[in-house]
Design a protein around this nucleic acid. Structure first.
Lengths: 120, 120
DNA sequence: CTCATTGGTTACTTAAATGTTACTACTTTT
DNA sequence: AAAAGTAGTAACATTTAAGTAACCAATGAG
């Protein structure tokens, strides 16, 4: 997403898709709902995403003003990510998209709104 | 969109993005809001989309059950596309995404909810 | 008979998104 | 001294989405 979609009509809906679309961004935004989470925790909760892509997606979300990155200068480095105020305004939309997506879902393989994977 | 996104968490939000996301689908869905439109009219209203891509996107939307394609056996062929009932259920979401996208917009280059281009 | 119109299709190409692997600097633990 | 944890980065490769150009069959108009 993002540069990829050059949005020839400057359509506001396409613009929104460009902000939140893609394979990982909805999952990241949902995971940040409860509060700030550090990089390593995201990486372990979402094992299928490579660290490079995780970094990149988080950076895009930060550049787009949807999340805030805070770096704590500690002995082993610590970086926390959290939703910005603007990011929080996406929640009603994500919830509506969630509800619609659930309707379209194969009931056999149902996901969850906040699909927490048990940590090792 | 679609095959591209393999949605590893089976996230309902990602699923919804896969249905409506992409460079052209929101624009097509919005144009079908007022009622059925024929292929050629879509093509002329959206000059930036090639016929191949237009055909392909419409076919995906039809396969996904969001629009209905009706072929009239006439002398010059006529094909009309319209929203299905399921497609109509997307409207609140598209409207919410529109409203959010408008907030994020550069006011200098504002688009419209139904960006009708004057026909030749 | 030739040309235009309609709604496409086919083969090929480009561009964008995502993925893999290896590597880093620093510090603490063993 | 060696190993492990943190949050990455760089170079490269693959997969998917989107675009281009050329073509087609049936009919009707001129």
């Amino acid at each position: 997403m993002r540069k990829y979609q050059n949005n020839p009509f400057n359509c506001a809906v396409v613009r929104t898709v460009n902000y939140i679309g893609g394979k990982w961004k909805p999952i990241l935004l949902i995971r940040l709902l409860p509060g700030s989470v550090r990089f390593g925790k995201l990486a372990s909760q979402i094992p299928d995403i490579s660290r490079k892509i995780l970094t990149q997606q988080l950076k895009e979300l930060e550049e787009d003003g949807l999340i805030i990155r805070t770096e704590y200068k500690e002995k082993p480095p610590r970086v926390e990510y959290e939703l910005s105020e603007r990011g929080k305004t996406l929640m009603p939309i994500l919830k509506a998209m969630y509800d619609w997506g659930v309707q379209m879902e194969d009931p056999e393989t149902r996901g969850t709104w906040d699909p927490v994977i048990p940590e090792k």
